[in-house]
Design a protein around this nucleic acid. Structure first.
Lengths: 303, 303
DNA sequence: CGACGGCGATACCCTGGAGGCATCGCCGTA
DNA sequence: TACGGCGATGCCTCCAGGGTATCGCCGTCG
């Protein structure tokens, strides 16, 4: 009658690996159990999900459909469990996520006027799981940067800010006042894997380097493994002795948005969204010209 | 580890009735089973959900949170199952829902140019479950009318149309060219229950009459049980010998929107949305002045 | 060409959970 | 004080989910 979320989780494991034995290892169960559970799921849904033949395991149409749907459903279930256990503790809590360079302070302060009883936690988030954290309830509201997979989310734009190139200190453009995108044509670019999309797990072209978060980006750029780009406010917040920032005049600006899970409806969340929109200009100030020049002066003395 | 959707469904039944015995009847299981299952769920979540004392059963904070979250989660699970079984049949299908008075023909035709292989089914929907049908996958896209609970949905406005009063043929204003809202002050108004919000199941003030859908509305108005309002295009499509439509000049217009489940992402759905937006003007024509005058002339001869 | 190894399926067993029925304990009320 | 309503408990059965051992198929390699 009802879907069995455990079987669904098992199916996702098999579909990801396309291999019963290894999936069973991942799940810490024996392979025959997994084999039977998948068959039971197929019977339950009345549709074959996998094709097993001598060439290995492949997905059917129904299997592909289930794979795309199962992740969000499991995330929702996780979010429900998380919210219930939080509600059981009695204290009203709101977890706000923010990408590097964004300060939620103004919105939190504004929100606290209306809800002095609600405890607001803030947590930094990264591009590769910003959507997942919203969907599975680890954060209630997120200051996110595009691009983001909007599936299951409600995303509203807040403001934009220019982007800067991240160059090693010895780079030929490192001292420039500004450059254009075409100046950097052919430069090796660090690849930021985005696991928020389908977890197809193909190796990314960084020759094995995992680039996640700003600090790591700066390290890799400093090490000469490639260049990267950052929103200007992020560049204001992070400096590195071996790294220089140079504005790129013709690069599409970075879009900062507010995001919540679409299924999430609560007056507390709505009031925070209102507060965040009301204080958007203050939030945007972190990356304005003044802050940029100030930080740039500091950075210039740094090296 | 994973949430058990069956226990969740059981919990919703108990929370709705606030009575174990009756909830067990609803679920067609014995009361002791239900009692144990709820305890198991509480243990599983690590939080008490219900307070049982001599005064009956009440929800805790955690229980309230779970009740609000459980419905959408169960609907999502249902949607997943439905989509998988449809995908298993191989044929690409798209179910389009539309409220009374709206014709999806133009969008369907436009969509068919791009996707001749996709079978487009259309189905009329009502206000009281338009959101639920989107959330549990019975329809993929909906031409809906506001108000609608946007939780878990992606709703984009299409067009607006004026609204008309629905009056019995013998009403003192039945022959008027137009009236204002204040003219109808004090008139008994039919109440349309909206089960899409919390199913609190309190009796609605219609003295026992269930008013659902346009045809029933017309019957009740004709019987003199009250007056009602309809979007003009709906009035164009439906006529009744004992009922007259009169434009209300100062009533807020009816907003027609497109809606999809927020978790639903598929190129087919997106293409239909694009087609629907592209043909919005054609769709809106059903309620324009010309159609209205034509229908009104017919209706005048009708009586 | 036969032996072997990888991999999913099957056989069989054990335990725990979900269902049923009968009954208890509590409490409000007649 | 007796009774009735209601949720909890005790006890049984049965099946689903977990394990181990093994089979059957097939590709590969000596």
């Amino acid at each position: 009658m009802d879907l069995d979320l455990r079987k669904l989780r098992y199916f996702v494991a098999v579909a990801d690996r396309l291999h019963f034995g290894r999936a069973a290892d991942d799940l810490h169960i024996a392979q025959p159990v997994l084999s039977r559970q998948i068959r039971a799921l197929e019977q339950d849904l009345g549709a074959p999900l996998l094709i097993r033949d001598s060439h290995g395991v492949a997905l059917t149409d129904a299997g592909r459909q289930l794979l795309t749907d199962a992740g969000p459903l499991l995330a929702s279930a996780e979010a429900v469990r998380r919210r219930v256990t939080v509600a059981a503790r009695g204290s009203q809590r709101l977890m706000v996520g923010f990408r590097a360079g964004i300060t939620a302070t103004a919105a939190v302060r504004e929100f606290a006027i209306r809800h002095p009883d609600v405890i607001v936690d803030v947590q930094r988030i990264e591009s590769d799981d910003q959507a997942a954290m919203l969907l599975d309830g680890r954060i209630d509201v997120g200051y996110v940067r595009l691009p983001i997979d909007e599936t299951g989310l409600r995303v509203t734009p807040l403001y934009t800010e220019p982007r800067v190139a991240v160059l090693p200190a010895g780079h030929r453009f490192a001292g420039r006042e500004q450059i254009t995108e075409s100046d950097l044509a052919g430069e090796p670019l660090l690849w930021h894997p985005d696991t928020s999309t389908q977890p197809t797990k193909r190796p990314h072209p960084n020759a094995g380097y995992l680039v996640r978060g700003v600090d790591e980006t700066l390290e890799h750029v400093a090490a000469g493994r490639g260049i990267s780009f950052l929103a200007r406010s992020t560049a204001v917040f992070y400096s590195h002795p071996e790294v220089r920032y140079v504005p790129v005049t013709d690069l599409a600006p970075d879009q900062v948005c507010l995001a919540v899970a679409a299924s999430r409806t609560s007056p507390v969340v709505n009031d925070f969204l209102a507060a965040a929109h009301a204080t958007a200009e203050i939030t945007a100030e972190c990356g304005n010209d003044e802050m940029w020049q100030l930080a740039n002066g500091v950075a210039a003395q740094h090296g």
